[in-house]
Design a protein around this nucleic acid. Structure first.
Lengths: 123, 123
DNA sequence: TATAGTAATAGGAATTATTACTGATAAGGA
DNA sequence: TCCTTATCAGTAATAATTCCTATTACTATA
């Protein structure tokens, strides 16, 4: 993977912020430094950076995918009022410490990604 | 909430299958029984059924939302080869029993939905 | 039965997020 | 420096979902 100027800016932006952004927000931010970067380039690079494990995605019930430069495994909390995404280290099932901080949890989703038994046997 | 013919068919379809379908798949299935149902009606009713807690959604890194009539809390596994979604009761963090069944896990995502501390204090 | 008020519908247009395509550009090795 | 090839900008296309409008169905009341 070539380290292009565009890819470098996208990655350093995500790493510099401890927050979560969708493709358009990243596009707007990076455009301040590379004014003529195109949205397609942002999408392509985000895809490659995810593939490479440099960044991770957050899938919410919102229509767009959010990207996160903080790749240590953690739990995300999406607020239905302000739409902010919060990080939590807690990995248990009770989420007691999150509730204790004043967060109200309506639902939680755990999704694993990988290869199923049948597909593993085929390959 | 009015229990219309359309809503009934959508709900009973999802409850009859222990699998996960996106809006278009549900549309195709229900159309066999209500040929002139519209895709908009399917989307609207799915939204209301989710609101009501009759069904749940599965958010994957795929672009479309999947719907599940099985509402007991559980973990989902998405296969990157066949795109199938599997259910697991296991709620721990090791997912040992899932791996033991022959599944390979690349990544896992836990997302909580609710209201954050600041928004809770505002209301 | 009428009638009115409300809620839901079909069908299609519009919107939004993302991906694909094309000719031009630049990264990195020889 | 030159050459190969991945990557780029710009734009068109696609896919998923939501919105809009005229019409229809249901409910309660008279």
């Amino acid at each position: 993977m070539r380290l292009t100027h565009q890819r470098e800016e996208i990655l350093s932006f995500l790493r510099s912020k401890r927050a979560h952004y969708n493709a358009v927000e990243i596009y707007d931010a990076v455009r301040e430094r590379i004014p003529n970067i195109s949205l397609g380039t942002v999408y392509r690079n985000l895809g490659k950076l995810v593939e490479d494990g440099e960044i991770i995605t957050v899938e919410t019930d919102n229509r767009s995918i959010y990207y996160d430069g903080y790749i240590v495994p953690h739990t995300h909390f999406v607020c239905k009022c302000c739409s902010q995404i919060f990080d939590f280290e807690e990995e248990g099932q009770s989420f007691k410490s999150i509730r204790d901080k004043g967060f109200t949890i309506d639902k939680h989703r755990t999704v694993l990604y990988g290869t199923c038994t049948v597909c593993n046997e085929k390959n």
